[in-house]
C-alpha cells in the first residue's frame, strides 16, 4: 500500500517536473506542423534586425507551441509579438507561439514574427535563410525561407495589382 502511494507520488512528481513535454504516445510535434509561405524580409543596408514570417498549420488534435527558432543568418533569433496600444506599436519577446489544434498560427508583419537580430550580413532578395523551429516536445523542423523585398511584394496590399 505504502509502496503504491510512493509510486503514485513519484509518477505525479515526474509528470510535474517534465510538465507537458515528451508525450511518447504522440508522434512528434514537428511532424504535425506544416509551414507554408515562409519568407524573410529584405533589409535596407546596415539594418540591425529583420523578421521572418510564415503560416504554421497544426494537423494534430492538440495545441502545439513553437518555443524557439534559430537561423544561420542571425546571431540572435527571438520570437516576438507586436501590440497596437491605441496607435503605439510595442514589440516584445514572447516565450512561445501557440498553434491551435487543427488550426493555424499566422506570423505576419505587425504581429507575431521570428525576429532575426544582428544578421551576419545584409540579406538581399534572392537569398535564402535556413530557420530551425523547435517545438515544446523538443522536436525540430528546418525550413528554407526566401528573402523577399517589401516593395516587390506589394507591401501589405493583397490586391494582386501588378505593373508589368
Amino acid at each position: 500500500m505504502k509502496r503504491t502511494l510512493h509510486n503514485a507520488i513519484f509518477t505525479l512528481t515526474l509528470g510535474a517536473m517534465s510538465t507537458l513535454s515528451a508525450t511518447h504516445a504522440l508522434a512528434n510535434q514537428a511532424d504535425a506542423i506544416q509551414v507554408s509561405d515562409p519568407y524573410v524580409r529584405e533589409m535596407p543596408a546596415g539594418a540591425f534586425a529583420t523578421a521572418s514570417f510564415m503560416t504554421l498549420s497544426n494537423q494534430s488534435n492538440q495545441a502545439i507551441k513553437l518555443v524557439k527558432a534559430n537561423s544561420d543568418v542571425a546571431k540572435i533569433t527571438e520570437l516576438h509579438t507586436h501590440t497596437n496600444d491605441n496607435g503605439m506599436m510595442r514589440m516584445r519577446q514572447v516565450p512561445f507561439f501557440e498553434v491551435p489544434a487543427n488550426g493555424q498560427a499566422e506570423l505576419k508583419p505587425g504581429g507575431n514574427h521570428i525576429m532575426l537580430i544582428s544578421p551576419t550580413k545584409t540579406l538581399k532578395a534572392g537569398e535564402t535563410a535556413t530557420i530551425t523551429l523547435t517545438f515544446e516536445d523538443g522536436s525540430h523542423k528546418q525550413i528554407q525561407a526566401p528573402v523577399k523585398s517589401v516593395m516587390k511584394m506589394g507591401g501589405m496590399d493583397h490586391s494582386n495589382h501588378q505593373h508589368h
Binding site: 534586425a49 523578421a51 507586436h82 505587425g110 514574427h113 517589401v150
Partner: peptide
C-alpha cells in the same frame, strides 16, 4: 532605422503608393 518591422512595413507601403 533600427526598426525591424513596423517602419519598413509603413515606409514600404508609402513608397509603393508613391511609385504608382
Amino acid at each position: 532605422t533600427y526598426c525591424p518591422d513596423i517602419c519598413p512595413t509603413d515606409l514600404g507601403n508609402l513608397a509603393m503608393a508613391y511609385r504608382r
